[in-house]
Every structure is written in structure tokens, then in C-alpha cells.
Nucleic acid binder design. Structure first.
Lengths: 151, 151
DNA sequence: GCCTTGCCTGGAGTGCACTCCAAGGCCATA
DNA sequence: TATGGCCTTGGAGTGCACTCCAGGCAAGGC
């Protein structure tokens, strides 16, 4: 199980107002015009509207801004957060743990150490998962080539 | 019941009657003495007894041999199958798909092509999953190094 | 004989992560 | 004015993969 080239990491410097380091992705609209409806966010993230509301209810999504009629208006920063959450989800992290991380973020800079620790533990899980998958790949390849030669 | 001492045991070459290519792992006991109780299999696979019985009920585990009193006696081949199933499980394959594969195996050699196809599709999923995890790793590394330098 | 341990069964229950429902508000266009 | 589209809510429902339960059988030790 050959393990991975670790990425050179943090090239992007953090926006001082940002919760964490800046993601390398463009937003659909520039800051200032970033008041997306829920259906725009659905189109952009691939999550359902149900799931977006549910994330908010359980505290995984911080207080989303509202229009004067009470409809949600998501910002670019909300989009960044959702993208990150999605990545965590893909690692298999339970939603409860993501909520825990969200709570740490809400508590401010004093939780940097805890957050780092949490992410490092997640990182170890991801590496283990990748190794497992490489292992599985070897088994699959063996079986596939058996079927390929046997017929 | 005495559980587990991993004996060096049988060189697991491919039994000609075997369903597929041979796994590279040693069995706890050589062929001929391979009549494991359910609790031995629990210790060996890490699955629970409940899960083992459930796998059998839903058709994921082929007909396990029984003692004269009706208790399950697992063979080395059963262990191999469980190990493979466990690998498939780790890929995130739904149980229903694994049952489908088990059915193909039961149907015999005529299903080689179908089985190959199924495994190749699984293989593609695994590769995609690995790529996703690498992506996530990059994000984690960026955030971790942010937290590391920021305090 | 009795107790403990290990195992058996069908069916019900659990936890997670959504997913949907019913009832209703707001607003633009016809 | 009405029709349709998009949005709101709390709470109930769903699907998956187990996980547990009640009641019972068989074997070995005291």
C-alpha cells in the first residue's frame, strides 16, 4: 500500500476575517453580491434543500443570513464552509463530530489547538482509509485478472 | 471454547474447486481441521455473531456447514469469503450489491463476465474514492498548517 | 439434578443521515 | 384576482446496516 505524496500544503494565506485558511476556489459571484437563495446553493453544492436546512437545525451550519421575508441568503463564506463540511463528510466523519468542530469554530481563536488536534486525527483516519482502499484495490485486481484470463 | 492461536498452517494455494483466485493469507487452522465455531469467526473477522447470522439470512454468506446439534461450523473457505466481503464493505459497496455478487458466484462459471464487470465497476469507484480522499487530505493539510503557524 | 456457557431462531429495535410532508407566506406575471 | 413558483416551519417517515431480545436447546462441570 504505497502511501501518498503529501501535498506541499498551505500556499494560500488566510483572509484575516476568515475562519481559517482560504480555499483555492472561485465563487459564483463576487463578495458583495453573494446573497444566494437556497436553490442556488443546491445547484452549487449538490446538497438538497432539505439537507441544508437540516444542517442549520443541528448546528452544523452557522446562522445563515435572511432576506426581509425570512428566506435564507447564503454568502460566499457559507459556501466555503459547506464545501469544507462536504470534504469532512467524504472522509466518513460522523455528523456529530462535524458539529463539534463547528462549535469550536464558533468559540473563536482560543480553540485553535483543539481544532488542529481534531483535524490531525481526521487526517490519520483518511490516511488509514486510503491504505485500506489500496489493499482492496489489490484484491480486486487479482480477482479481475482471474476472471479475465479464465474465460 | 478455546479461541485462536494463529497456526502457521496450510499454504493457501488455490483449491481447484475454489471460486476464485487464492488469497495470500494464512488460515488459523489447516484444511481438514477447519470447523470454526461462530465465536472463533467473530474473533478472527471482527464481525459480530449477529452480523454473521444476518449475512447468512440475507444470502450474503453461502450455506454454512452445521454440527450434529445444528451449530454453525465455518470452513477456511468461508473465512476467505468473509474477508473478501469485508473488503467490498470497506469500499462502501451496498450490501445488496454484495448479495448480487454472491448470487452470481452461486450460479457458477457462466457468470464470470458479469462478475468481472461488477468488480471493474467497483474498482472504478474505489479509484474515485481514493482521489477524493487525496483531495480532502490537501484541504486538511492546509488547515492544519494554518492552525500550527497561527498559535 | 442443576448451573453455566455457548449457541440457536424469528422478529423487533436502533442509530445515522437524511428525506419528505402538510400547511402556509410572498411575489411576479397574466 | 388568480395562478404558479419558490420559499418557510416542525415533525414524521425512510433506508440502510446492523443490533438486540426472548425463549429455548445441548453439552460439560460440580
Amino acid at each position: 500500500m504505497t502511501v501518498m505524496q503529501t501535498t506541499p500544503a498551505a500556499t494560500g494565506r488566510a483572509n484575516p476575517a476568515d475562519i481559517c485558511s482560504a480555499p483555492p476556489r472561485r465563487h459564483p459571484r463576487p463578495d458583495g453580491q453573494d446573497r444566494y437563495t437556497i436553490s442556488e446553493v443546491v445547484a452549487f453544492t449538490g446538497l438538497t434543500a432539505h439537507t441544508l436546512r437540516w444542517y442549520e437545525r443541528i448546528g452544523l451550519m452557522p446562522h445563515v443570513d435572511r432576506s426581509h421575508t425570512g428566506q435564507r441568503r447564503y454568502s460566499n463564506r457559507d459556501l466555503d464552509w459547506l464545501e469544507f463540511v462536504n470534504k469532512l463528510r467524504l472522509t466518513g466523519m460522523p455528523v456529530a463530530d462535524m458539529v463539534r468542530y463547528a462549535e469550536l469554530v464558533r468559540e473563536g481563536e482560543s480553540t485553535y489547538a483543539d481544532r488542529q488536534e481534531l483535524l490531525e486525527s481526521t487526517r490519520r483516519d483518511v490516511l488509514a482509509r486510503i491504505a485500506e482502499l489500496h489493499d482492496t484495490l489489490a484484491v480486486l485486481d487479482r480477482k479481475i485478472s482471474f476472471y479475465a484470463t479464465e474465460r
